[in-house]
Design a protein around this nucleic acid. Structure first.
Lengths: 235, 235
DNA sequence: TTCAAAAAATGATATAAATCACTTTATACA
DNA sequence: TGTATAAAGTGATTTATATCATTTTTTGAA
């Protein structure tokens, strides 16, 4: 991975889509001073379940999974993060240890903002505090939605949904080409909440139906509308 | 149900455990003026999935389930509310329709605070806004925890967990007597995320082991420590 | 380009839980 | 207090998905 100069918060392309969209210029300058730029190779741990959070991570490049392991070593992916997304804010607000780990799914770059700066920011800037509140509310809604689907939808529909989630999360803007992503069957199973063999079988079915194609671990979504229909069979 | 005078916010016994614990006296007086006291019979709907929220509900007495139905009519209970708990805050913050319904599990009384009062309150009182943020963070953590367990734990363990959740939510303070609750097997199944017959079977097992007893729909938890162990088999 | 290791794919089998059909027991109301 | 209705409980069967075993394909390094 080639080394790269740390980006400036003030000019960060993702700022306007991030928690920091309503920061003032001086606040951004302060953040930029105190932040710390990190790079992670694919598979590397960004933070670990059970550890204390010392600040907030903001993804600059790459893909991140936030997941939990049970004692059998089985993993469940709680959410996915993309550039501009923040990691660890819930633990910071609750002032509690991480309940999940963050792992890079690709080579990833992220900025780290110390907890004190984060706390000062939300104490001093009401807009940011409000945005954070809305972020929490949205995350809560998303989480409840996934909980419901886990309880009520069969694997086939949840897989269709997971593929659409990957698409909506990681698809480049204004790209008309079909969406492709390289993801292991094991990670996909950990999103869906099933076994990897089961994912493979339903994926094969989708391939037979011409809904997706795949080469190795790369999956291409050919007919997203069909996936949408499948995911909504029992809504 | 005998009619009862609306309680005053200023003197509400649940205030110090509620979102309003850091309200100033004048704020409480204002709330008390504008709030509206409602009573609901067991089974009655407090608000309905898909409707627009016009304010915040604060439970004064009784038990409430917040749940969603799918198109098959299958229900899943997202959370339980007790006196002092607020309902509908997520939808208000997101300024979106309810994504779940609230239904009284017992005869219930609740106060309704208009949305404008709620919004004014969190805009003007930083402490309350902060408490609300923490409430959201906690709810998000709880939701993710349940999501993980739904994905990873078998029904027996989730049932043990559900029984302990009922206990920790509805047990009276400083009560040394074993905890009892009247709840239909169907509602219990909707918390656990399984079929009612499956709940009944595992309950029978728990009864044979002397962990719980039951008469009709009333379940008594005799050995909560055993339930805790069962719920943690795979943690 | 070859080769070893990892990951995807496929098949056979086991298992947890859902569903269906029915009986027994509680509840509430006339 | 008896009786209708609803809910709890039980048994038999089906089904979705997990698990285990194995083969095939992909990947990445020598």
């Amino acid at each position: 991975m080639k080394s790269q100069a740390a980006p400036e918060c003030q000019r960060c392309a993702f700022r306007e889509f991030s928690l920091f969209k309503n920061c003032q210029h001086e606040e951004l300058e302060g953040m930029n001073e105190n932040k710390c730029f990190h790079t992670y190779k694919k598979g590397q741990v960004i933070f670990h379940e059970g550890n204390r959070p010392f600040g907030l991570f903001c993804v600059f490049d790459g893909k991140v999974k936030i997941s939990r392991l049970n004692s059998d070593g089985k993993e469940h992916i709680i959410r996915l993060a993309k550039p501009g997304d923040t990691l660890g804010y819930r633990s910071l607000i609750e002032n509690a240890k991480y309940t999940a780990s963050a792992v890079a799914l690709d080579d990833t770059q992220a900025c780290f903002l110390p907890a004190s700066d984060f706390n000062n920011l939300i104490d001093s800037n009401v807009k940011v505090a409000n945005d954070l509140m809305k972020m929490l509310a949205k995350a809560l809604g998303d989480s409840q939605e996934r909980m419901i689907h886990l309880a009520m939808k069969p694997v086939r529909e949840r897989l269709a949904e997971a593929l659409l989630l990957l698409r909506s999360t990681y698809q480049q803007k204004d790209e008309s080409a079909p969406f492709s992503i390289s993801i292991s069957r094991e990670d996909l199973a950990a999103i869906v909440g099933t076994a990897k063999e089961t994912v493979i079988r339903f994926l094969s079915e989708f391939k037979e139906d011409g809904i997706v194609t795949s080469h190795g671990s790369t999956i291409t979504i050919v007919k997203p509308d069909r996936l949408l229909k499948i995911s909504q069979l029992y809504d």
